[in-house]
């Protein structure tokens, strides 16, 4: 038993090292002027000064947060309503909904973006707006992750039984869903939302193909900085972007633990 525990701990430490070493090396590279021998030399914050001097960095970062969070919020809301309708009123349609939501898995970003652009931009109007198109495309890209996360969470709470209990206490089906079911599946929603946000945060292909120069995110800025300005400044930017995503994750998990309440407590 003890050996198993020790083995498990070793595997965990190895995985942590595997995940953290690239991050640490990137950070180290960003704060030293010279790294040609074994150890880096000339500690400097020059890369960070350059980054702060880049006027597009913070607006791009804000744009990235917005374009990552908005489609996730829209998709979560749509998926909650769709699953509510299907599971409560048309349970037989669930397999079709699942099939529909899984299709984007099979479509690569390039194909999706090119298809969307060629389909919608021919006729000028509301739907040909590149930003709307981008939000719509992102909603499709993250659909499988959001669907699976919410569906699995719903399976774990015995939704029909809790809705019936709430109905017997005076709630309508919709009230029961949003007041009882949703608070209980917040952990599932937040995990799939975080996964989707981090996917969209690092997107380069879809945003480049759909929005072109109309909407620049940090991935595009990083690519340009790396090619035109300096790799070191790009690593400083990457470090800050990583810290921002980490902060978003911590905020979401804090929110989740507050909403979760007693679902994880066991003490009889």
């Amino acid at each position: 038993m003890k050996n198993h525990k020790a083995g498990g701990n070793i595997v965990l430490v190895l995985i942590m090292v595997y995940l953290l070493v690239p991050l640490l090396l990137t950070f180290t590279f960003s704060v030293f002027g010279n790294w040609t021998s074994m150890l880096p030399k000339n500690f400097t914050l020059r890369a960070y000064e350059d980054m702060l001097a880049t006027p597009r960095f913070f607006p791009d970062l804000l744009r990235t947060i917005i374009i990552s969070v908005v489609p996730v919020a829209i998709t979560v809301l749509i998926m909650l309503l769709a699953l509510y309708t299907v599971l409560i009123f048309f349970p037989r349609l669930e397999k079709f909904l699942q099939l529909l939501c899984m299709i984007p898995y099979a479509i690569q970003g390039v194909i999706l973006s090119v298809s969307i652009v060629s389909l919608y931009t021919r006729v000028p109007g509301f739907l040909s707006n590149r930003i709307f198109l981008l939000v719509g495309a992102y909603c499709i890209v993250i659909l499988p992750y959001i669907f699976q996360g919410i569906r699995n969470a719903m399976r774990s709470v015995n939704m029909p039984m809790l809705i019936e209990a709430a109905e017997m206490l005076g709630a309508s089906k919709l009230e029961a869903f949003f007041k009882v079911i949703v608070p209980n599946i917040v952990p599932g929603i937040s995990v799939s939302a975080l996964l989707s946000i981090s996917m969209l945060f690092g997107d380069w292909v879809v945003i480049r193909n759909i929005a072109g120069n109309a909407y620049e995110n940090v991935s595009i800025l990083l690519y340009m900085t790396m090619n035109i300005v300096s790799v070191r400044t790009a690593t400083a930017m990457f470090t800050v972007v990583f810290l921002v995503t980490l902060l978003i994750s911590i905020l979401v998990f804090n929110l989740q633990s507050k909403t979760e309440g007693g679902t994880s407590r066991e003490e009889r």
């Binding site: 709470v157 015995n158 039984m161 809790l162 019936e164 209990a165 709430a166 109905e167 017997m168 206490l169 005076g170 709630a171 309508s172 009882v180 608070p183 209980n184 909403t259 979760e260 309440g261 007693g262 679902t263």
Partner: peptide, 19 residues
């Protein structure tokens, strides 16, 4: 609908709201 019948119910599996 159930919410307008003025009836209380206790289920086999308690059905308490976990959160």
């Amino acid at each position: 609908p159930p919410q307008r019948r003025d009836i209380g119910m206790v289920f086999q599996q308690y059905s308490l709201f976990p959160n």
